[in-house]
Amino acid sequence: MSLVVVVSASAALDTVMGLPYWIPTLLWVASGALVFHRPTEDRFARHVLKLQRPMPQEAAMLEPVWREVTSRAGVDGQRYELWIDNSQDLNAYAAAGHIVGVTRFALERLPSAQLAAVLAHELGHHTGGHAWSSLLGHWYSLPGRIAWQVSRAIVVFVVSVAGAVSSGAAGVLVVVIGAAASAVTIVLYGLPLVLLVIPYLMAAVERRGELRADEHAAALGFGPMLAEVLTTMHAMEPAAGQTPARPSAPARLLSSHPDYPTRLRRLRPYLDAQG
C-alpha cells in the first residue's frame, strides 16, 4: 500500500514538474539501506533517539560487560555502537543496524551481572535481525499509514460538516464514501484492508522478537540474571503501589512487549536447566 502511495505521489510530481516517477520511487525503496549506514545511524541516535556517547567513566563500566557478553556470543562487539540514554528508567534497546542504548539508571543501578543480561538481550535483537527489520517495517509502512490517517481525517471532517447541515445529507455522503472505498479496495485487490491489521501484525512480530531476545540471553547463561531484572521491572510497574488495571484486549494486541509473567514463564526452562 505504501508503494501505491509513493508511486501515485511520484506520478503527480511527474505531471507537475516533469520528474520521472520512477526516480522518487527508486530513492524511497533504496532509502532502507540507510539503516546500516554508520553516519546516518549516528545522526539517528543523537537527534531522534536523543542518545549520548558514554563518558569515560561510563565507558569504563560498560565496555568490560559488553566484552563479556559478545565473547560468550562469539561476535565482534566492535561492530556495534554503545550509547547512553539520559533517563532514570530501567531500560535498554537495540536500534537500526548497530545501536545499543542503555539508560543511565540501568548503567548506574544494575549489578554487572544483571547489566550483562540486559545487554545480552539487546544483542539478541541485533543478531536476530529484530532491530533493523522493525525499523524498516515502520519506515516502509509509513506512507501507507499516513495516507490512511489523512483519508480518515478528511472523511470524518466532511461527514461532520454534512451532518451539521443535514442528517440526510450526511447519510447519503456516508453511503457514497462507502461505495467509493469498496471500489478502491476491489481495484487494489483488498490492499487497503491490510492497513487495518498492520499495526497488530507489527506488534505481534515485535512481541515475538522480545521473547526470542530473552531466549538468546538465557542461552548465553544470563537467564537467572535476566529473570531478576524482569522481576524488578514488573515490581516497578504499578504506580504508587497500586495494582494497575488489566489492559484491554486491543491494547494487549497492540503492545510491542509481552507482559512480564509471560516473559518469566518462557524463561523458566532455562532457569531449571541452569539451576
Rank of each mutant, 00 (worst) to 15 (best):
V4K: 01
V4E: 03
V5I: 06
V6G: 02
L13G: 13
D14F: 13
V16K: 12
G18Q: 05
P20S: 07
I23Y: 15
I23A: 14
P24V: 02
T25K: 00
S31E: 15
L34G: 02
L49D: 05
R53Y: 13
R53A: 11
P54M: 09
Q57N: 11
A59C: 10
M61N: 06
R72S: 03
G74L: 06
Q78N: 15
E81M: 13
S87T: 05
Y93H: 14
Y93E: 08
A95H: 06
A96V: 09
G97M: 02
I99H: 01
G101F: 01
A106W: 00
L110N: 01
P111D: 06
P111W: 08
S112R: 15
L115G: 02
L115S: 03
V118C: 08
L119W: 02
G124N: 01
G128E: 13
A131H: 01
A131C: 11
H138Y: 14
I146Q: 02
W148Q: 12
Q149L: 07
Q149K: 11
S151M: 13
A153C: 08
I154M: 07
V158Q: 07
S160L: 11
A162W: 05
G163C: 07
V165A: 12
V165P: 13
S167G: 08
G168P: 08
V174Q: 04
A181I: 10
A181P: 00
S182E: 10
S182R: 12
S182P: 03
T185E: 10
V187P: 06
V187R: 15
G190H: 11
G190S: 07
L191Y: 01
L193Q: 10
L195Q: 08
Y200D: 00
A204P: 06
G209Y: 04
E215N: 11
H216D: 00
L220D: 00
G221E: 05
M233F: 14
M233V: 05
A235E: 04
E237S: 10
G241I: 00
Q242M: 14
Q242N: 14
P247R: 08
P250C: 04
R252C: 07
L253T: 00
S255Y: 04
S256A: 10
D259M: 06
R266N: 07
P269W: 06
